[in-house]
């Protein structure tokens, strides 16, 4: 499973304005995984601003958490910023990778409010992968699962 974006694409992505990218991300997120996450205790996260920085594409996504899901935010100050490559974010999302391992290897950086960052990480870790998967539309869910199973078999986990 290789997920390194070609240099030209990365350059193009980096030049896109941040808000549409954040909006696209928040919308996609709300249409898929939000359903399985909405019952979590988001209380402590209200009004806080997050930034996900995809290092190799140059993309930065800004958002906050509202009662109805993620809300895209304009570029600016974030309370906590996560930085990693597209591949590593994908592997984290698929639960193939341990965040601490990535941190030791300097592949994951958490800047800003560490406690907030840890809270998000731990809350997401507490949700079972099957639960997340169940909130995806059928075909997409099966596809995601197949990618994960294959990566596990290939011993990339």
């Amino acid at each position: 499973m290789k997920l390194t974006p070609p240099a030209a694409l990365a350059k193009l992505l980096a030049r896109l304005p941040a808000y549409p990218a954040s909006l696209a991300f928040a919308t996609a997120f709300n249409l898929t995984v939000w359903k399985s996450l909405q019952d979590l205790d988001w209380e402590a996260l209200q009004e806080r601003r997050f930034c996900v920085h995809v290092r190799d594409t140059g993309i930065k996504l800004w958002f906050s958490v509202a009662t109805s899901g993620l809300k895209a935010e304009k570029a600016g100050q974030a309370d906590v910023t996560f930085t990693a490559t597209l591949m590593d974010f994908t592997r984290l999302a698929l639960r193939l990778e341990d965040p601490d391992t990535l941190f030791f290897n300097r592949r994951l950086l958490i800047e800003g409010d560490t406690d907030l960052g840890l809270r998000v990480k731990n809350m997401l870790d507490g949700v079972e992968f099957e639960t997340l998967l169940a909130s995806f539309p059928g075909v997409l869910g099966r596809l995601v699962n197949r990618v994960r199973e294959r990566a596990l078999r290939e011993g990339m986990a």
Partner: peptide, 14 residues
Amino acid sequence: PGHAVRWQQTPTGM
């Protein structure tokens, strides 16, 4: 404790 930890990337390192 999470509330006391801060990481920051600087020109001379993290």
